[in-house]
Design a protein around this nucleic acid. Structure first.
Length: 726
DNA sequence: TGGTTTAGAGTTTTT
DNA sequence: CTCTAAACCA
């Protein structure tokens, strides 16, 4: 097409084809490990390099920040024209970007707040109370799900009410409009609203749509199998003019249907765009032939998938190892020992290993075993740093500065630190603000002025003064601004007065947050214009925080084993992978086991997990597993049986050893001695966490503060812990 | 108002 | 079992 297209030496024919097919709709079915990011980036470089479009005429949409960051990094490496004006970002970030520009068009101001799941839940509870929907009969989570699904399908409250049949749906239908009204009154959007409102902006405002349609000559979407209806419609609108839409995905890796992802978006792409070109990337560069054969064999049991056969030129490699453990402790111990064995015998670093599990509840046992073996690890996902109460408090303070209508955040911190403002007062203010149709802060100020008695006024006034003071602050750097605000709130002082291990840990987290602000300012200096006022920087920072996940903080450079759920693992790869808990009722999970579609999704999940492995794969299951107190015996996962026999080998249980340490672990012989061995104030050294100070000693555990490595609760006698001074 | 106790829930959660 | 959140009492 263009003379420069052949400057793509290390692309296979299918990849090159995808890179060069720039005109018209294109569906790339990219199997696991087939180099789709490479194709995406080279294609963009080709479009820019051949002069078909300027960087600002391209938008590349991903699902995760990590994927967006990787794409940006790799773009930077292959094409020089810096992708500064190119939009390479997640769906949500793109929507926010559009909404910040034209928020008024959909009835918000551009200072709108993004509510995360926790904020939304609080708001929903209030709306449910107002609608007199009983939380006992209709759990908040259930109502939240209905409303979320409706939004993902672009169903508005009226339409939802019209089609509500079940009592649950009818209850949700009563709450939905109230919830939405409250969000708007707060100038706030939940995650789903970002998509809904961005879609509304494009669909209802032809001039806005025209602006983007003419600008974006090329639209690229990664992980297309995960798009929900709202995302599908947004993409459709954006790409309608030029029809240069490339979507990349793998129907076999669709594992988010429960979040609204609609697999039909990828399956029906050819119907939507009859002129579409379809290219299959079927050569896998990641895994050994054995691992790939196992993955193929498992997913082949699914019906209704796009026909494709992943193959590899890689060597056969080791057989997949399966291990039948006695129980989950034995399983964890096996994994820990195997990691140590391979690390020493095959020259692997800790970061070469990953352990996947179906449910977060499984991580604890695995952690214990790793800790005992002295193996450094990091858990990705689960409770995230930014989800911690103290960090959310800090963020709530920042949010109310940006958006004074944000009632959820102001209620969160109205009594943090304690000011003697209890539930009764808060409820009264909230009620008046609803009744008088004014913002919470406005009502709060009337309370402060004494309109509702002098008692509440005295309690509330210092808080109002605090808000005014911190709103007026204007430091030179973002970090200083945040630090000064938080210092004035007295949060840290309160924690210091508490003087417990927990409180000092929380204070440490808050101080770490100042570092986050500093780091943000340093790495985003250009995004919010050098010299942008501090308020703008703060708003950008808060937005960035709202759209980040735990995955983003996963440090690839650390020498640690990685633990995560299979869902979180999508898109990643590791030389050695352990999949734990491969038992029927756990993986596949009970809740999906009797539903054919659910079971197929579990199978895709297994496929995703297996295809993360490059060299070695271990599948483990336990004969007996204690979960939530009771022990159950689960049969091995049906997915193991779906793997061809020749790909598998069983590892014999290390019975004597496991029995021995099992005994020891149940009777903490050293526990009694531990009180003598360690006491609060001792300086200790841990094989993994380094130097720390003992904070608390109980019968068999010690709580040690490792500073930046965190506060850990360790088993005395098992943890590689050594006293260095008292 | 605020600390304590008890009751309930526990699949997955890219943003 | 274990963590969180609502109910409860001082």
């Amino acid at each position: 097409m263009t003379p420069m297209t052949e400057k793509t030496p290390d692309l296979n024919p299918a990849q090159a084809d995808a890179v060069n097919s720039t005109d018209g709709p294109l569906l790339v079915l990219a199997g696991a490990g087939s180099g789709k990011t490479k194709v995406l980036t080279h294609r963009i470089a080709h479009i820019v390099g051949s002069g078909k479009a300027r960087p600002e005429e391209i938008v590349a949409i991903t699902f995760t920040n990590k994927a967006a960051a990787e794409m940006k990094a790799r773009l930077g490496a292959i094409c020089d024209p810096s992708a500064r004006n190119m939009w390479v970002m997640t769906f949500h970030a793109m929507c926010v970007r559009m909404l910040r520009i034209d928020a008024e068009r959909v009835g918000y101001t551009n200072r709108f707040t993004i509510y995360d799941a926790d904020d939304s839940k609080r708001m929903l509870k209030a709306a449910m109370a107002q609608a007199e929907v009983d939380e006992k009969r209709y759990p908040v989570a259930g109502v939240a799900n209905r409303i979320s699904s409706a939004k993902n399908e672009l169903i508005d409250p009226d339409e939802f009410a019209a089609s509500a049949i079940t009592p649950m749906d009818k209850a949700a239908a009563r709450v939905f409009p109230l919830y939405q009204r409250r969000l708007k009154d707060c100038n706030a959007m939940d995650f789903d609203d970002l998509l809904v409102e961005a879609h509304r902006l494009l669909a209802d405002h032809p001039d806005v749509l025209d602006r983007y349609q003419s600008r974006f000559r090329y639209v690229l979407v990664d992980e297309y199998q995960d798009t929900n209806h709202a995302q599908y419609r947004i993409v459709k609108l954006l790409a309608e003019r030029h029809r240069n839409l490339m979507v990349v995905g793998d129907d076999d890796q669709s594992i988010y249907s429960w979040r609204g992802a609609d697999i039909r978006n990828i399956l029906d792409f050819e119907q939507d765009y009859p002129e579409a070109n379809v290219i299959r990337l079927e050569q896998n560069y990641r895994s050994t032939a054995t691992i790939l054969a196992a993955a193929n064999a498992v997913v082949a049991n699914n019906l209704g998938r796009k026909a494709k056969t992943l193959w590899t030129a890689n060597a056969g490699g080791e057989a997949v190892t399966s291990y039948k453990a006695d129980d989950e402790r034995d399983e964890a111990r096996f994994i820990a020992r195997e990691i140590e064995r391979l690390r020493l015998s095959e020259d692997h670093g800790y970061s070469d290993f990953a352990i996947f599990y179906r449910t977060n509840a499984q991580s604890r046992t695995l952690e214990d075993a790793l800790l005992r073996e002295g193996i450094p690890y990091q858990i990705v996902g689960g409770t995230r740093y930014f989800d911690r109460a103290e960090i959310r408090d800090v963020m709530a303070y920042l949010k109310i500065l940006i958006n004074p209508l944000d009632a959820i955040s102001i209620q969160r911190i109205i009594n943090k630190p304690k000011r003697g403002i209890g539930k009764t007062t808060v409820d009264r203010i909230a009620q008046v603000s609803i009744d008088d149709a004014e913002s919470f802060e406005t009502t709060l100020r009337r309370f402060s002025a004494g309109d509702f008695g002098s008692g509440p006024a005295a309690k509330v006034r210092p808080f109002v003064e605090l808000i005014d003071e911190i709103r007026a602050m204007n430091e030179h750097s973002l970090r200083d601004q945040v630090e000064r605000i938080i210092d004035r709130t007295g949060l840290l002082q309160e924690l210091a007065n508490e003087g417990t291990v927990e409180s000092s840990g929380r204070a440490e987290n808050i101080r770490e947050f100042f570092g986050v602000a500093e780091e943000y300012a340093a790495t985003h200096a250009n995004s919010s214009e050098a010299g942008a006022d501090i308020a703008t920087q703060l708003a950008d920072f808060v937005e960035w925080l709202a759209l980040r996940s735990d995955l983003d903080s996963m440090s690839g450079d650390q020498e640690t084993v990685t633990l995560m759920t299979v869902h979180t693992a999508k898109g990643l790869e590791f030389p050695v992978v352990f999949i734990a808990g491969l038992e029927d009722t756990l993986f596949p999970h009970v809740n999906s086991i009797f539903d054919p579609a659910g079971l197929e999704e579990e199978r895709r999940l297994a496929y995703v997990a297996i295809t993360r492995a490059r060299e070695r794969l271990y599948l483990t299951h336990a004969r007996n597993r204690s979960l939530f107190g009771s022990t159950r015996s689960n049969p091995p996962s049906r997915f193991i049986a779906e793997i061809p026999r020749e790909c598998l080998k069983a590892d014999a249980p290390v019975r004597t050893q496991s029995f021995l340490s099992g005994t020891v672990s149940q009777k903490p012989v050293v526990g009694a001695a531990s009180n003598v061995e360690f006491q609060a104030g001792d300086r200790v050294e841990h094989k993994v966490f380094g130097i720390g100070v003992v904070k608390q000693v109980s019968k068999d555990r010690v709580t040690v503060d490792f500073g930046s490595k965190g506060v850990k609760n360790l088993m005395v006698g098992f943890a590689p812990l050594r006293k260095i001074a008292s």
